[in-house]
Write a protein that binds this DNA or RNA. Structure first.
Length: 839
RNA sequence: GCGGGAGUGGUGGAAUGGCAGACACGAUUGACUUAAAAUCAAUUGGAGCAAUCCGUGCGGGUUCGACUCCCGCCUUCCGCACCA
């Protein structure tokens, strides 16, 4: 008889048992060991094949939230998996450290942007270390430090030398209240300033651009990459290639002077249908061709268009508006004169800023014609019915055959017809075939302080002069005063602005704009290959050792920004002879995002959840598994009150894995039952197949459920036959479980690996090899259907032939009952799976 | 408007055209406990006493057989959006 006190004592000693799973201690212990043994550093000279596992680096916003953890855990699981497949995995991390939030913190709270950023990095790095990732910290890059941005400046100079950087006037977002330029992200969807709510205006400023448009066609070529279809499609749409023609019209101004105005059109086959001509409000000819009688109305219209936000102006719901210039243009194909109008639906930034109006066959032109009472002339007619221009309610697009077009009448609506027209205008010398892109040149100037200074000076005698390489880096001053007056605070620092011209030695001013932060992220993956190089941006041999990136992981929101810029950079550097390849990222994967209240979890958007408390309570392994168990990695997850409940499931699972190993320690001697051992081996090898496949294609949630099922069946084996403990098959099973789980839960598996008598780290072991012979089923369950409905399930020996299986099925009483004495018309047989009897 | 995803129990989610709901969460019950937590065991899509029937956003179709393929819708998320 045990007393209550004794029981209680047993319980409390049980709870302090040192064989209990205590993630906190285990995780700290192993993280220290891993760091000391340097096992996460990828050596350049390692003979194993390389695997460059890259994740989009974070912005150091202040603290690491659960969304970061989700992202980085998935990447780390994949990297660890590849390492266990025998690769020399390089998995670096760094910080994209220039950008607006630091500057806003400086303005609002008076902290120095640099200090704010570096302390955030410090904090995030230490938070990140608790997840036990294989980040190669020796390769860390921080883009706001001079030893990095020196080379960003150097790359700018290289692009400038190659003729890929130029300076031009361009409109920027201007807040009249704050007296400052805003980034596009700071302009809200309704066109107001995110800080003060004032309506944002456009201003023309001299800006630096990169000629990304000259790479448009190269960027449309995806032959060398294995990317998600949708990402390539987004880039294709963004680049927006359209084939067509440039056609020259002749405007006669009020002074009688003639000026050639080209238009771009994808439909030169509708040239006979032109009934008016349109100019964008910003078009340089507007003032010149407007007659005195129209001047006042035109000036008002242009001023209004300029003051409108892109959002207001580009709404397709908006009614068509416009003003007649009073002038006429000559259609080169038939010599007809048509009126020239100005309208805001023609954009200065696309094509030539001038458009030929073909209302019969373009919906926008049709609406414009109806609003302004302009004529509509059909140059295509449907093949099966006749229509009249007066009765049309919408434009006729891509239908019928050519009419009212002289010798072209009767041609079908086709690419061939378009080409026929292009040949004609080329022969006449009034135009030529042309390809146009939606893509614009990349504007990299920012009237901001916290960014890489543009290494250029302005000299009165020599004009724009590049800072020589030997004078790099152009250091960004740390102490500045912020004044909300629309210019970079750098302009108020004479010690920064005033310099001497590198060419003539005379007085010169430095460029005070800084670079778009996308510049920093367009080459960081190269710097990781040689992060500590003080002599060069990167060593060619080292970059060749690691590039291209084998696996790149990041959010889909970067499809048309960062991913396009980085490809452009790589191609441009390749063409300058600075790289041996021209595609940076071989494989791409977009992880989903953790959302709260439907929106991406991020500090700038409000609510975030910190992982620290969860890690403290359940351990990093449990949090890692939990996040990966939420669903497919590319789907992300909604974070709400119920989400965290799922953590207890994986936490229990890890405890069960732990206890499974402890139970074997206290179990008696093995009792060998060859049939049971065979069964254990079968389950083990089926699991290897499943989990390895899943880990290989990012199905991390099902990899985990496979391991849970495996663990559950091991418990069942042990419950049925306690003698299985410590049999060779059992040991193989436990070893397999630990190896397969290691990428997901690195700490507990390392600890148990040691406990089960292994030496050396589990993480550099190879993944267990799948042996198909051991995974073969001996007995299979055949599903029996009658007319497609399941009526019975029959167990048969796996090798049984078709006829024997059918005979067994037909002998089933349940099947007989379902068949109701009818004769089988047809019997479908799927080997090892199913028999369907059709009666 | 165009392009691309996604719609499955109370919840997160599984399912090479072949047993819908694996694996978990939650819930209910039981064991252990003075009690709770933890753990273990059982049940858990709906209806029905049952045999059985009904169920993967909606409507059609292909097929012996459809969550899966095809056509037409609806809802929702993402990207682009007056691009000539």
């Amino acid at each position: 008889m045990t007393t209550e006190i004794e029981k209680s004592a047993a319980r409390s000693s049980d709870s302090s048992d040192n064989r209990r799973y205590t993630p906190g201690d285990i995780e700290k212990k192993w993280q220290k060991v891993w760091e000391e043994t340097g096992q996460n550093h990828a050596d350049d000279n390692d003979p194993r094949p390389k695997f460059y596992n890259l994740v989009m680096f974070p912005y150091p916003s202040g603290d690491l939230h659960i969304g970061h953890w989700y992202n980085f855990t998935g990447v780390d699981v994949f990297g660890r998996f590849q390492r266990m497949n025998g690769y020399n995995v390089m998995q670096p991390l760094g910080f994209d450290a220039f950008g607006l939030p630091a500057e806003n913190a400086a303005i609002k709270r008076g902290v120095q942007a640099r200090k704010w950023t570096l302390s955030n990095i410090e904090k995030m790095r230490s938070q990140l270390k608790t997840m036990g990732g294989i980040w190669d910290w020796q390769r860390e890059v921080v883009t706001c430090l001079p030893d990095y941005y020196k080379w960003t400046q150097w790359l700018f100079l290289k692009l400038y030398e190659a003729g890929l950087a130029y300076r031009a006037k361009a409109p920027v977002n201007w807040c009249p209240n704050d007296q400052t330029v805003l980034a596009n992200e700071q302009v809200l969807a309704d066109g107001t300033c995110e800080r003060c709510g004032a309506v944002v205006e456009k201003r023309e400023l001299e800006q630096w651009f990169f000629k990304i448009t000259s790479y448009a066609d190269r960027l449309l070529d995806f032959k060398e990459v294995d990317w998600p279809e949708r990402t390539m499609l987004m880039q294709k749409n963004w680049i927006g290639r359209s084939e067509g023609a440039r056609v020259n019209f002749m405007i006669t101004g009020p002074d009688g002077q003639e000026t050639t105005v080209p238009v771009f059109t994808t439909r030169p086959d509708t040239l006979f249908g032109v009934t008016f001509f349109l100019l964008a409000p910003e078009h340089p000819l507007v003032e010149k061709v407007t007659t005195p009688a129209q001047q006042a109305e035109m000036a008002a219209y242009v001023a209004k268009a300029r003051s409108e936000t892109d959002f207001e102006r580009q709404s397709s719901e908006k009614k068509k508006t416009g003003v007649f210039t009073g002038s006429y243009v000559t259609n080169p194909i038939n010599g007809e004169k048509v009126p020239v109008w100005v309208t805001d639906y023609v954009l200065m930034g696309y094509g030539t800023g001038a458009v030929m109006g073909v209302p019969a066959h373009d919906q926008r032109d049709f609406e414009f014609a109806r609003t302004m009472g302009l004529p509509v002339r059909l140059v295509y007619e449907p093949d099966d019915r006749s229509i009249s221009a007066d009765e049309m309610t919408q434009a006729l697009v891509h239908e019928g055959h050519v009419v009212n077009s002289d010798q072209f009448n009767g041609l079908p609506d086709s690419q061939e017809t378009v080409k026929t027209f292009i040949r004609f205008i080329e022969e006449k010398g009034v135009g030529k075939a042309e390809i146009n892109y939606r893509l614009r040149d990349w504007l990299i100037s920012r009237q901001r302080y916290w960014g890489t200074p543009i290494p250029m000076v302005f000299c009165e005698t020599d004009g724009i002069v590049a800072v020589p390489e030997s004078q790099l880096p152009v250091i960004l001053p740390e102490e500045v005063n912020f004044r909300p007056d629309g210019v970079s605070p750098l302009q108020y620092l004479p010690e920064f602005v005033d310099t001497t011209c590198p060419k003539c030695g005379g007085p010169a001013r430095r460029e005070t704009d800084t670079m778009d932060t996308f510049m920093c992220s367009s080459w960081y993956f190269l710097r990781y290959c040689d992060a500590q190089d003080a002599e060069a941006a990167y060593d060619r041999a080292k970059v060749n050792r690691w590039m291209p990136v084998d696996q790149y992981t990041g959010g889909p929101e970067h499809a048309t920004m960062h991913l396009l810029y980085a490809r452009f950079f790589t191609k441009a550097l390749h063409d300058m002879g600075l790289l041996d390849f021209d595609e940076p990222f071989r494989k791409l994967f977009h992880q989903g995002m953790i959302r709260s209240e439907g929106k991406k979890m991020s500090k700038s958007r409000g609510k975030t959840v910190a992982p620290d408390a969860l890690v403290e309570q359940f351990g990093a392994d449990a949090v890692r598994c939990f996040l990966m168990f939420l669903g497919p990695f590319d789907q992300g997850a909604e974070w709400n009150d119920k989400t965290e409940q799922l953590l207890s499931g994986v936490s229990r699972f890890l405890n069960r894995v732990w206890n499974l190993v402890q139970n074997a320690e206290t179990a008696g001697p093995p009792v060998v039952d060859s049939a049971v051992e065979k069964e254990i081996r079968r389950v083990t090898h089926k699991t290897i197949k499943r989990v390895v496949d899943d880990l290989g294609h990012w199905a991390l949630n099902t990899a985990l459920s496979g391991l849970m099922e495996f663990t559950n069946s091991l418990y069942e084996f042990a419950a049925k036959q306690p003698g299985v403990y410590n049999t060779p098959a059992w040991k193989e099973a436990i070893e397999t479980l630990l190896l397969l789980l290691a990428p997901l839960a690195p700490h507990i598996t390392e600890e148990l690996w040691q406990q089960t008598g292994h030496t050396g780290t589990i993480h550099t072991q190879r993944m267990p090899a799948f042996d198909p012979a051991l995974a073969v089923d001996e007995v299979v369950t055949i599903v029996v259907q009658v007319n497609g409905k399941v009526r019975d399930k029959i167990e048969v020996a796996a090798g049984l032939g078709e006829e024997e299986v059918k005979a067994t099925v037909l002998a089933s009483p349940k099947v007989a009952a379902a068949m109701e004495d009818k004769h089988p018309k047809k019997v479908i047989y799927v080997a090892g799976k199913l028999v369907n009897i059709v009666v």
